[in-house]
Design a protein around this nucleic acid. Structure first.
Lengths: 329, 329
DNA sequence: CATATTGCGTGAACTGTTTCACGTGAATCT
DNA sequence: AGATTCACGTGAAACAGTTCACGCAATATG
């Protein structure tokens, strides 16, 4: 280093290169500058080991090349994968990602937003649970899986279409009386449309169906209880079940087997998410696959480039069906 | 907002409160200040909706309250969990976390370090694979699972002890000829000590053992081939296997079963990591459990407070054994 | 040949904090 | 009562960039 071990500044580079401060700035911002000057600056910078100080830059230019991601946690593989893809997509665009984990606590979510408003990021991608998250109007925000407001882009899978697809699949596989089961947060969100899609398909096609919704606070036991009540002499009232998530489907399957109902022989099961077991890369169950990578890339694109005709503020990305052993294909 | 929608600054707060700039600064830095002044400032700040600008602060104070985490990816649940705990620990200390994902590419790792050197963070926690990562001497760095240099703290599980523990467990469960199997990166790391611990225990206790190491590029098939070669008429040459990771153990188990060797009846299996299946919260196999949360918290603590007598620069955190169905308990 | 236009390097001004030397008034000491 | 601390509020300077009005020279235009 040059003097006193302190990191070199643009001023040092300017002196070393024998040019003005503004010229150095231009070089580092890809603003056209005479070729000879450009070379002088670049060589001086390399000689000094100069790196721009992002804080000074952020202060003046109000641009940080940082995006915040707000997530409930990383111990759910869906969230982890989402974070992975978002981080990679941001890196591709030369952005960094600061990650905030909220454990789905609305208080923590609000705290994150406030922290980010301290000029910490150019924008936010959030997967939040607070019912009334107030997002600063001039802080670009893209929400995943939850509609927050008309001016806030919201990206999700085509939950409605996925629900329809699940119903259609069950019916086409021979189910006469399908059931929709969900358990999750009480806060309304896009994922609720999975059930709506299922119900709509059944109604439009005159299928006899049932739908039962549970809240997190009721616990999975209430689902088991429901299943027990609808099981008579080893025979379930339903011959197909669409569960709102893969992991939930897994629990349902385990419970059914424990009370003597075979999957997929007695009842066929379809989940939602498209998660794969880390150990084998197989699906947990037959499932509606969310395009996680596409969700991530779309969220990043819209955050950085804004919504457009091609990328409207409200996008439902196409899902697909994948058999996973819990259906009779 | 006050004027022209621009965010209020300390100057605005000072004017609103009728105090000097420095006083406002002190209030926001918890530097003692007369009670009446403190109240005046706090009320003015609230009225204006003032938030400190972290970039100005970072510029001046050379303190960013940001730590970077460098990880290969998040699709491995071990890494995801580690990131989760590190993020939570940092939040507890009022730090933010910027996450960089490298996909284990040394080139990407170096790029991350360089990016962070642009004053983006006060320190780095890295789980890297580059053999020759050059870390700036005055950028605090804590490495996980890889020894980088004498001046760079390195946190890991007690891999050696865990290896011994696995060997001891297998022996105490009746194994007469245990085998150690590993597959992984060629870059040396702390995790290599798992095998060393295993071997040491066997040698010290006069146990007949074997140890076989594979590299990632050889592929899991080479492990299968090895197992096939050591299996005669449905009987394996070994009655216990210690695998370097849980997921690896899972594959070994599956393959053994596919060639007619029963786990745990014919051969007992112990993995390393302590991962749980996301769907059931059960271990994948009998395993040596890494204290992930403690690793995370220790890494954060050392990064923020520096190494000390209580927290030396090289720490191996105690592991524990947990049965997971692949041993005859 | 004179004037207008263009291109481009220059450096002062500015961004919003923290820090520190300074000054003021109150409290303590002799 | 006068001198000496002490406590603490003050505001200018500094941090390291970006931006922009300016000026100079070279080229284009009439």
């Amino acid at each position: 280093m040059n003097k006193a071990g302190k990191a070199p500044t643009m001023k040092d580079v300017a002196r070393e290169a024998g040019v003005a401060l503004g010229t150095v700035s231009k070089v580092f911002n890809s603003i056209p500058v005479g070729e000879s000057y450009k070379i002088k600056v670049e060589e001086a910078a390399k000689r000094l080991g100069y790196r721009v100080n992002s804080y000074a830059r952020g202060l003046r230019a109000d641009k940080t090349y940082t995006v915040a991601l707000i997530l409930p946690s990383l111990d759910n593989p869906f969230f982890a994968l989402l974070a992975d893809h978002i981080c990679v997509a941001l890196t591709k665009h030369n952005y960094r990602m600061v990650l905030a984990i909220t454990k789905a606590d609305p208080h923590a979510e609000a705290r994150c937003i406030r922290m980010i408003e301290q000029n910490m990021a150019d924008g936010v991608i959030g997967l939040t649970y607070a019912a009334d998250l107030d997002v600063n109007e001039n802080l670009p925000y893209v929400s995943i899986d939850r509609f927050i407001g008309p001016n806030i882009p919201c990206i999700s899978s085509d939950n409605f279409g996925g629900g329809q697809m699940a119903a259609e699949k069950l019916v086409s596989l021979g189910c006469k009386k399908p059931l929709f089961l969900r358990i999750g947060s009480d806060v309304p969100g896009e994922t609720d449309k999975r059930g709506a899609g299922f119900v709509t398909y059944c109604q439009m096609n005159g299928i006899e169906y049932a739908a039962q919704r549970f809240s997190d606070w009721q616990g999975i036991e209430s689902v088991y209880k429901f299943l027990d009540e609808h099981c008579h002499r080893g025979k379930l009232d339903y011959d197909g079940i669409f569960c709102s998530t893969d992991l939930f489907a897994y629990h349902v399957k385990k419970h059914l087997e424990s009370i003597g109902v075979c999957v997929p022989e007695d009842v066929q099961l379809i989940g939602f998410d498209g998660l794969k077991r880390p150990e084998t890369d197989e699906f947990y169950c037959s499932t509606i696959v969310q395009p996680i990578q596409q969700i991530a890339e779309t969220a990043v694109y819209i955050l950085l480039h804004g919504a457009s005709e091609q990328f409207p503020g409200f996008m439902s990305l196409p899902v697909s069906y994948a058999p996973g052993g819990t259906t009779r294909e």
